[in-house]
Design a binder for these strands. Sequence first.
DNA 1: TGCAAGCTATAACTTATAATTATAATAATA
DNA 2: TATTATTATAATTATAAGTTATAGCTTGCA
Lengths: 294, 294
Amino acid sequence: MELRHLTYLLSVVEEGSFTRAAEKLYVSQPALSQQIKQLEDELGTPVLDRAGRRVRLNAAGEIFVMHARRVFQELDEAKIALQELQELQRGSLRVGIVQTVNAYLIPPVVARFTEAYPLIQLEIEELAAGEIEQALREGLVQLGVSFIPPTEEGLEYEELFNEELVLVIGEKHAMANCVEIEVSKLNGFPLVLLPKSYCTRRLWEECSQKAGIQARVVVEMNTIGAILSTIRQTKAGTILPRLALQQPYSQGLIGVQLCNPTPRRTVGLLWRRNAYRCRASQVFSQFLNEVILP
Amino acid sequence: MELRHLTYLLSVVEEGSFTRAAEKLYVSQPALSQQIKQLEDELGTPVLDRAGRRVRLNAAGEIFVMHARRVFQELDEAKIALQELQELQRGSLRVGIVQTVNAYLIPPVVARFTEAYPLIQLEIEELAAGEIEQALREGLVQLGVSFIPPTEEGLEYEELFNEELVLVIGEKHAMANCVEIEVSKLNGFPLVLLPKSYCTRRLWEECSQKAGIQARVVVEMNTIGAILSTIRQTKAGTILPRLALQQPYSQGLIGVQLCNPTPRRTVGLLWRRNAYRCRASQVFSQFLNEVILP
DNA sequence: TGCAAGCTATAACTTATAATTATAATAATA
DNA sequence: TATTATTATAATTATAAGTTATAGCTTGCA
């Protein structure tokens, strides 16, 4: 049985005639007769009474047609639902984002998105870069905002922006007036840093190694807010992307540019290779780009 | 879109692989790929994420598959309903029956039928012969029990039995001892008869005309019970099929055979030509035959 | 009652399309 | 990096839907 059989039957019922139904369906009358016969053979019972001038449903036909109509109703509903999904009237989007970006770039994007598409279930997960890549591969998130290039295989990405890491210290710190400072000068400097599982931390490690120094890590903390609060109350500093200073917690703190080398990182969008990028994720990406490049 | 597309999609989803789904469907893998592609083209969106080793539904796919499953559920229900109809577990049967037959032959048939198939909605309508033929043509009843051959066109029939009309009189009537009586002897005989719209009455009119006599119709009554009660209390007689005397009302009455000519009538089953004779009507016919020919 | 018109079914044939085979392209695994 | 597993594509074959011609019934009208 195929939908064609149901379509044809409904048309015959509606027209009360094979000939007229065939005209409406733009097929020949014998084609229609054959298909109806096939249907009746498969159902094991006639569904139409061919009473000369008028063709009408018999008892079995009445029952079958009722269900056939529901079949098409169901398919119509499916098409409407897909349409709505296309128009972002439903569906969900899960995005994995690294802490530093999440803290100061994502709120305005989320605000715009939820206002524009209130019916989309948006889920933002703050994850470490490695967790994001893992979540993408497992399909736990559809989109990642993390550092590029990714370390794992099977992911595609697109650059969002490139930023430098700066030394963050209290504005009354002895070094607060420096325009820039060489990394090599930070040997033994007390730092409050993110754990080594964080990309930002690893970038710093790489950078300090290049400069041939060893900073003194007084404490590791895993949230930026906590680190900044600590810096504000001690002589220690921290290494963070400059944009972290846009946070509300950053009052009373300043960033000093590092050089020789200047640690930099590139943030981008990530997704699983070959995964269908749903409209919701496309729109989210677009909003993010608009916030970055005003 | 055809049901084939839905079947294939559901199979791919279930197996999580084109290759395995194709094996289960007994088609080649490329055939499957092509059909899924057709479906996606028609829906205007991909429904599957081909992520290398594993194939899975995307958001649009989840929605569509839900509806596709309901489509097959609907068709399953349709098949079950038709099955039940075939097995007389549901459905209805409307039968039009002439008074004389209804009065003494139908009750046992109805009893057997309703006991055997309690879920069938059986409707017995007592109608005049002409009304039965009309109701058959209009599809108001599926089966008729009436006199054959029918007067209207477009009806088919099958003989049930042939019976003679007799003169019914009280057992203490002067003529009660006659074995038979010639119609010509009934000139001026007082009779209580059915109205002229009834076939039995018309048969008698034809018969008396042939014999060249004119009976005296003292009163017309349209129910057999009333006629018999009247006969029991008067010197009048009536003309009815012999089987009418099997009724409970017939105590104290006897039937005298008529001859020259002997009025006879044939009772049969009637249905609309080319109409599908549903199982319920076939079973009803069978029961009726069994009651007549024990 | 017979004839003409209208409608559906059947048969033979044609066309469209689904399925197959062969093979390329791609991703996962060793 | 080679190999295996998996899906996509291209060309061909097979199937089945469609078409044309026509027969067989009904029905309506002369």
